[in-house]
Amino acid sequence: MRGCRAWLLLALCAYGISAWAGGAAATTAGSGATPGNVLAHGARDGKVPAWAIAVDTPAGWTRDCCTYARAIGVDAVLYQGEWTGKPQRVMVLNVWPSKLPTLQAELDADRKHYLQRDPTAKTRSFPVPHAAMPCQATVYEGSDHVDDVVAFCDPGKASGVRLSWSMSFNDGGPQQRALLDDFMRVVVASHYRHYVAPPLAKPAAAAH
């Protein structure tokens, strides 16, 4: 079991970073998140402008912002197969008004909260090569053999928000590498946009 976790951290911090960096460049130059790929959006909140997060979805994943995501109090989820309500193998998007001064402060607060719940957990953080905004990720090795990966991104001061993607998975599961690859593809393909509501459709003219 520990060998699987050592491999996980090695893959994330060495081979995985270079591979995802290449994927990020390809996404930005080619099929990056297009305006029509908005997954979730939020209304203006005081000084925080209305926001939208656009992302391309890996094959085999279902997008949801308004059914299951709303039921569990998050902005969006991506999941495979049928929705089970279990946290494993579900990518979760959260967007919130930024209050902490830096992206590192967000990571530190998240790590403190996690270790309060699981003091014996192991953690490792690393930068994520995103072409449009700084992102940092942390892998948590839980004592319950359920691991978590969380990526925080900062779209910039003018946006007024920060965002995170997170996912839980069983340590050493057979699809662990594929899940992590898809997760990182989603992170580097996520793009902040100022949200502008589409114009209301004009009512059809009455027949004469």
Rank of each mutant, 00 (worst) to 15 (best):
L93A: 06
G60V: 01
L78C: 00
M91P: 06
A59Y: 05
V92M: 03
Y114D: 15
R111I: 15
D75F: 05
Y114V: 14
L93I: 04
T67N: 09
Q80L: 07
A69P: 01
T62L: 00
T57A: 02
P87R: 03
T102I: 01
W83Q: 11
E106F: 00
Q116N: 09
R70E: 15
A71K: 12
T57K: 03
T84M: 05
A76V: 02
H113V: 12
L100P: 00
A54N: 05
D75E: 14
R117G: 14
V74Q: 13
L78M: 03
V77D: 13
K99I: 14
G73M: 10
A109P: 02
G60W: 00
W83V: 13
A109T: 09
C65F: 07
A76E: 08
T67M: 11
P97T: 06
Y114C: 06
L93W: 04
L115D: 02
E106Q: 10
M91Q: 12
Q80G: 05
E106V: 01
P58S: 09
I72H: 10
C66L: 10
L115F: 01
T102M: 00
P97Q: 00
R117H: 12
Q116K: 12
D56H: 08
C65D: 15
A76L: 04
A59E: 13
D108V: 10
D64T: 07
D75H: 10
S98E: 13
T84N: 06
A59H: 07
L93P: 01
Q88K: 13
L93C: 10
W96P: 00
D108T: 08
L93R: 02
M91Y: 11
Y79H: 00
A76K: 00
A76Q: 05
G81V: 09
P101H: 06
V92E: 09
C66Y: 08
P87C: 00
P58A: 06
K86N: 09
Q104D: 14
A71G: 06
V95H: 12
C66A: 15
R63F: 04
L107R: 11
Y79Q: 03
P101A: 13
S98G: 11
A54T: 05
K112E: 15
P87G: 02
Y114L: 13
V55K: 04
L115A: 00
D110Y: 08
A71L: 09
K86P: 02
G81C: 02
P87Y: 03
L93N: 05
I72S: 11
V77F: 06
A69S: 03
S98W: 04
K99Q: 15
